[in-house]
Design a protein around this nucleic acid. Structure first.
Length: 230
DNA sequence: AAACTGTTCAACCGCCTTGCC
DNA sequence: TGGCAAGGCGGTTGAACAGTT
């Protein structure tokens, strides 16, 4: 790959890239640099466009609300930066990753909790975990996001899944924070097959509600009916 | 003022996924 | 159905900047 430039982009390169994309779009990133007269690889052009030059990007500080959102989503999705970014208009996956790694992660370290959640895991016969780590926000957030596709996939993989009752799982017994074994949630669908669920207000939550203490399971044969924390 | 240390963030790297032939 | 190309993603790096001694 001799002759390909690396490192920081110059204003001239930015201008070339923006001008080209505005004129012709980016049909093929691999060929784009050649046609745009850039000594960069296609990947580099794509990254520059997505993370910096694309219209509609919010530059500057992440707001408190955005921060809270990142924390919640990270608790549920783990290091799925692109998925998290999809929920934050104008923010890029790279930006969110940087924000997380530079300040938010430290905040969790100092609190002594584990912020990340890699993959859904099976915890017991009677329940499936959508996420094994959760909301560690300092506020009593009661909104959580469930990846509907992931739920569906898990359900399909495990025939026992739909046979679960609403009784408490063994994990609940070891949870000192909450005595009630389960409660239901109302749901709110949004785009991309995810839906928000809002925990019922009737439940008395501990001051520092931590979803990581719970698993989600589907309590009826229909995914659309009800989810439970257990 | 200089040296050192810590932080931020743009960019790169390599792996994985997807779509096409 | 397998192979290949391209795009997408997450982890990592390193330069620039800020703060501290």
């Amino acid at each position: 790959m001799g002759g390909l430039k690396k490192g920081a982009w110059t204003p001239e390169e930015d201008l070339r890239l923006v001008t080209y994309i505005h004129k012709y779009g980016h049909g093929n990133w691999r060929n784009l640099p050649k046609y745009a007269g850039l000594a960069r690889c296609g990947k580099s052009c794509r990254l520059r466009w997505i993370n910096y030059l694309r219209p509609g990007l919010k530059r500057g500080n992440i707001s408190k609300e955005e921060e809270e959102m990142i924390i919640r989503l990270h608790g549920l999705l783990g290091n799925k930066w692109s998925k998290i970014a999809a929920c934050l208009p104008g923010r890029t996956d790279n930006e969110i990753k940087n924000v997380w790694n530079s300040h938010l992660k430290k905040r969790f370290k100092s609190k002594g909790s584990k912020p990340s959640c890699k993959k859904p895991k099976k915890v017991s016969n009677s329940s499936k975990s959508v996420c094994d780590q959760g909301n560690t926000s300092s506020e009593n957030s009661k909104m959580v996001l469930i990846d509907f596709e992931e739920c569906l996939m898990l359900k399909e993989q495990d025939p026992e899944y739909t046979n679960t009752s609403s009784t408490a799982s063994s994990q609940t017994d070891s949870n000192p924070k909450i005595s009630s074994p389960s409660f239901s949630c109302s749901k709110k669908f949004d785009e991309e097959n995810k839906f928000w669920i809002e925990l019922e207000e009737c439940l008395t939550l501990p001051d520092l509600f931590d979803i990581s203490e719970f698993d989600f399971k589907i309590s009826s044969s229909s995914l659309e009916n009800e989810l439970e924390l257990c």
